[in-house]
Design a protein around this nucleic acid. Structure first.
Length: 500
RNA sequence: GGUCCCAUCGUCUAGCGGUUAGGACAUCGGCCUCUCACGUCGGUAACACGGGUUCAAGUCCCGUUGGGAUCGCCA
């Protein structure tokens, strides 16, 4: 048995939509699971809507997701050197024409000289009720017209029997042949129409599995007709349920983050996004977190569902959060945080020891890399940004002395990074213990000084635990910040602080 | 309207003839606690409806209702 060949064939009319990414993923998965080939083809026959930026956006998004392709263009400038190239449809025009001619010669297709106006006129001549289901019958269907006039090429659809195909997800789908029309193969301008270009390419590229969105089920029957006309074997079809905005509408551009690029900017991890997307239409027991490698192993068609799903941004975020908290490697997180940190004008080197330590203290509470960078901000800045509300709430003259003492404590108890003899976690535990003992020894409760100390150390009312914070900051920075806090607290007017 | 397709908590889903119908997100409440989270314990919450088949139906069949796709010289 030959190895499967699958393809993802986006049209570059915008960024890569998450629905498209889901389709690409399923194709990629099957190729990787079976040791088959994953082909990337660009369907750019709609000259009016295609842009170079879109082509680039698609490549960028695919690469970011880690969905690598075995055949296809390397970038927007590359035609794609593979054995079945070129992989841009706009570069394959002669091939479509050639195949259309072949069908004309074999009597499966014909030149039609009817113009759009003719067809519209015919439609409008009908009673209004019948217009929607109007079926254009070309007068050129059985004429041997040789006119050198503008024309389209149409396939001759049978009027009897039925057209059927097997679908990996939906089973056998059949449709009465008479409901199919004489689909246009080649437009008047010489460009192929989607269904034809798609079939010719899949045929000539040796595609064995056509996996795409459910909205293409309707296109499959006419395509089956084309395969038949060529006398070719049908590929295996598989249609995936749609991603909906709600029970009535498809997910569209206006519904928030739907472009893959946005997820990258938002601070999502590729596998986090993919884990969420793959569960749209596929499940593996109760598992929700997957890496691409584990998916390539587990994926199978019998667990793909048929019904459309409503996209839930909250759940997507929650999955990503779990990835950041648990599954992602520290290396991944470190690399991923560089950009969001830079966006806050924090230029940090990957080799900065504070980076990994900070990440480890905040990853549990960050749903995205951007949020994580925000949470790490105070570690990496000389003077942390002070949250006014937290300052007003927790800085009181009466805490000044304690903060002063805590500064002493920090200076003497926080172990310098270079002097550590145990793991960060062990030092953190020891320091936490010492801190508690120290505070209790002062005759006060942790509760009374925790928040003021936190504001002094981090500038905010919420952060990782104090011991972790001090350990990452180091003794001198911790002490300095606590002293500064003491000074500021002391300067607060008691009256003002107590005023309503 | 024609054709095709779908139907378990609010959402994503598990279930593949016998279950107290499970999990996750969301939501509500408790615990933990130096804050926010994390974690943890618990609550609310679903088989669209009607007929069959069967000893037994969320699971199989038919119908109804609801929903989606599509009906372009777009992809």
């Amino acid at each position: 048995m030959d190895k499967p060949r699958l393809r993802f064939a986006p049209s570059p009319t915008g960024y890569l939509h998450i629905g498209g990414a889901r389709t690409a993923l399923f194709n990629w998965l099957w190729a990787r699971k079976t040791g088959g080939t994953f082909v990337l083809r660009i369907e750019d026959t709609d000259v009016a809507r295609n842009t170079r930026e879109s082509v680039e956006a698609i490549f960028t998004a695919m690469k970011w997701l880690g969905l690598d392709w075995d055949e296809g263009p390397k970038d927007a400038d590359d035609q794609g050197g593979g054995p079945n190239g070129p992989y841009f449809q706009s570069k394959r025009l002669a091939l479509y024409r050639e195949h259309a001619d072949k069908l004309i010669r074999s009597g499966h297709a014909y030149r039609c000289y009817a113009t759009k106006e003719d067809i519209d006129a015919a439609r409008m001549a009908l009673p209004e009720k019948l217009r929607a289901s109007f079926h254009f019958q070309s007068p050129w269907r059985d004429k041997r017209a040789e006119l050198d006039k503008p024309h389209v090429v149409r396939i001759k659809a049978p009027s009897e029997g039925e057209v059927s195909f097997d679908d990996l997800v939906f089973g056998t789908i059949k449709v009465p042949a008479h409901t199919l029309r004489d689909e246009i193969l080649i437009r008047e301008n010489g460009m192929p129409l989607y269904n034809f270009g798609c079939v010719v390419d899949d045929l000539t590229m040796g595609i064995t599995h056509v996996i795409r969105g459910k909205d293409h089920i309707i296109n499959t029957s006419p395509q089956v007709l084309m395969y038949r006309a060529f006398g070719a074997k049908l590929p295996t079809f598989g249609h995936l349920p749609m991603l909906m905005k709600n029970s009535k509408e498809k997910l569209s551009k206006r519904d928030g983050a739907v472009g893959v690029g946005e997820y990258e900017a938002l601070g999502y991890l590729p596998d986090g996004l993919l884990s969420y997307l793959v569960r749209f239409g596929w499940s593996f027991g109760d598992e929700e977190l997957f890496t691409k490698a584990s998916l390539a192993e587990k994926f199978d068609w019998d667990r793909v569902s048929k019904s459309d799903g409503i996209y839930d941004f909250k759940k997507c975020k929650a999955i990503n959060q779990k990835f950041i908290a648990k599954l992602a490697t520290i290396d991944e997180l470190a690399k991923g945080s560089i950009k969001p940190l830079a966006d806050r004008s924090l230029i940090v080197s990957l080799s900065d020891p504070r980076l990994v330590e900070s990440i480890n203290t905040v990853r549990e509470r960050a749903e995205t890399l951007v949020v994580m960078a925000e949470a790490m901000d105070f570690y990496l800045r000389d003077v942390p940004a002070m949250d006014d509300a937290a300052v007003t709430k927790f800085y009181k003259p009466e805490v000044a002395d304690t903060l002063e003492k805590l500064a002493e404590f920090a200076a003497t108890h926080v172990v310098e990074r270079e002097a550590r003899t145990m793991s960060f976690g062990e030092h953190q535990k020891a320091l936490e213990e010492a801190l508690r003992t120290f505070v209790t020894g002062l005759g006060i409760e942790m509760k009374a000084i925790g928040q003021p100390a936190r504001v002094a150390l981090t500038g905010r009312g919420a952060s990782p635990d104090l011991a972790s914070v001090m350990l990452v900051l180091g003794p001198s920075v911790s002490a300095r910040r606590l002293r500064d806090g003491a000074a500021r607290a002391r300067a607060i007017e008691p009256a003002a602080a107590g005023a309503p």
